[in-house]
Amino acid sequence: MLEHLELFFKSIFIDNMVFAVFLGMCSYLAVSKKVATAVGLGAAVIFVLAVTVPLNWLLDQYLLRDGALVWLGPEYADYDLGFLSFILFIATIATMVQLVEIVVEKFSPALYNSLGIFLPLIAVNCAILGGSLFMQSREIATFGLALNYGISSGIGWFLAILAIAAIREKIRYSNVPAPLRGLGITFIITGLMGIGFQSFGGMLTGGGDSVVPVEETTAKKEEIKEEEEKKKKDEMAANAVSYTDINTNE
């Protein structure tokens, strides 16, 4: 339970999709002129993330990762289809978006009218693919946590676009220097909001320790992985030597 809560708040505030890793910036900038449309897109993103992240987690767990195919039989234990993850993830996302669009249109025309135009946009929203890729690189452990991660990072994105849309509606009445108007000032505001969101970093550590940035933690994990791989390779090398010894002895 506690780890669910931790992941939930961490993905909303600390690893916020927009302010910490800049995912989904294109639609964030393009659709944030009005609060109403921002809410529509934000809701669609939460929805699609909640569907695609757990699905891709299943794919990763049972098809893609090193040794994932072992459920087919012990002879498949050596397969590592990890290089296919981009193409499979994006195919899942594109089909799911299409499917969701059809289902929503059929069963809830009202929701379709408010979400409908945004759904096709979402297939190419980096926040969606990013959600799946981060799920993979952070090695989220269970299906429940993956679902949690999808929903909470969607909520984080929703909060971000809602906030910037509200600010942009107000800033229309301010006297912004002409060359900065529109895109320029939005960038700077987002930057300032990002700095603000960095202060959430102390939330989980109690403010005592300095927060480890996302990239570093993944890099560390990969280092550990590398060491394991090295060990494996060393073992294999040792085995190879013994085989050759046997051969020469014969």
């Binding site: 060359p179 108007r181 529109g182 320029g184 960038f187 930057g191 700095i195 960095q198």
Partner: peptide, 26 residues
């Protein structure tokens, strides 16, 4: 990370001050 946003914002500022045809309405 947020510094990148501000740097890009400043680049946009410089570019649009040089070429005023690019300035947005709002």
């Amino acid at each position: 990370p947020p510094a990148a946003l501000i740097v890009v914002g400043l680049i946009i500022w410089v570019q649009r001050s040089k070429n005023r045809a690019l300035i947005e309405e709002n």
